[in-house]
């Protein structure tokens, strides 16, 4: 990893995996003048099922999930492999459709939206970070960050953009193509892209899955900072109790159902929960 200013800062902030302090709820910094009621649900699933295939071969990836994600919070979505985490996230993000049940983003019922409206919703109101292949290879870092805005034909808010760039610490790499960036840097660009358009909610599916622990910690710190300092809302799928410790809340899935949740999770409490789940 290159030793840049932000990285040093991160290093200082990165807790060792075991002594990760339980993050405390930070006082909300309201840069938004609009009187947003606290704990407004940004994204919600009600009695959602998702069935792949039919008959004997049917797989119930989601078997009746009801869950809400509140504004200004960082939530971890956890559970064993195949429990339906990605499926739920894709449904929440308008990338996939549910078999039954209702998905809402803000006050929009996704089932009522056509492809055009869904695309616009993803572009303007949702941010994404995938596990890998997050960036368009032909666009440089800055272009990738501003991609959703460019697609909308809008110019980025300069001060916000600068703030995001500095937060992710990529000022020196803005004109680099993804192939010229390390895996960690690529994920940071992806996080920046998710932030730049100021979406109502950011979904991240195992964003640190392909990174070493140090690069992973950076990303997690950014996400947490985005929530704490930039007042964003983030839902993150992860297998890693250490990663979950960065969040405000951990929601557990098992066999397509909600299987409990933890407030202010720590690596230890998540570990406990997962152990109990496994038994």
């Amino acid at each position: 990893m290159l030793a840049g200013g932000p990285e040093r800062r991160v290093e200082g902030m990165t807790p060792t995996t075991t002594t990760n302090p339980a993050p405390t709820r930070s006082p909300r910094l309201p840069p938004d003048p609009a009187p947003v009621p606290p704990r407004r649900v940004v994204a919600g699933a009600t009695d959602v099922t998702k069935v792949y295939g039919a008959g004997d071969a049917a797989v119930h990836a989601l078997a009746g999930v009801t869950v809400g994600f509140e504004a200004g919070r960082f939530t971890a979505l956890m559970g064993p492999s195949g429990s339906g985490k990605s499926t739920l996230m894709h449904c929440l993000a308008g990338l996939d459709t549910v078999t039954t049940g209702v998905i809402t983003i803000g006050d929009a019922d996704l089932a009522t939206l056509g492809d055009k409206a869904l695309t616009r919703l993803r572009r303007d109101r949702i941010g994404f970070v995938f596990q890998s292949f997050n960036l368009i290879p032909t666009l440089d870092a800055l272009e990738n960050m501003t991609l959703p805005l460019s697609l909308a034909g809008r110019r980025p808010d300069r001060t916000w953009l600068d703030q995001v760039i500095d937060t992710v610490g990529l000022r020196a790499r803005l004109d680099h193509r993804p192939s010229e960036l390390s895996g960690g840097q690529q994920q940071r660009v992806a996080v920046a892209r998710a932030l730049v358009s100021r979406p109502e909610i950011i979904f991240a599916d195992e964003p640190t899955g392909n990174l070493d622990s140090r690069a992973g910690a950076e990303i997690l710190t950014f996400l947490r900072n985005a929530v704490r300092e930039l007042d964003q809302t983030v839902v993150m799928v992860t297998h890693d109790p250490t990663a979950a410790a960065y969040t405000d809340r951990a929601v557990f899935l098992a066999d397509g159902r909600i299987d409990g949740e933890l407030a202010d999770p720590t690596a230890a409490s998540v570990g406990d929960h997962l152990t109990r789940q496994g038994s």
């Binding site: 616009r120 993803r122 303007d124 997050n134 368009i136 697609l151």
Partner: peptide, 16 residues
């Protein structure tokens, strides 16, 4: 196709 899928995911419309 992955790239196109990504573009569509982050909000590129079909027309675009």
């Amino acid at each position: 196709r992955r790239e196109l899928g990504l573009l569509r995911a982050v909000g590129m419309s079909r027309a675009q």
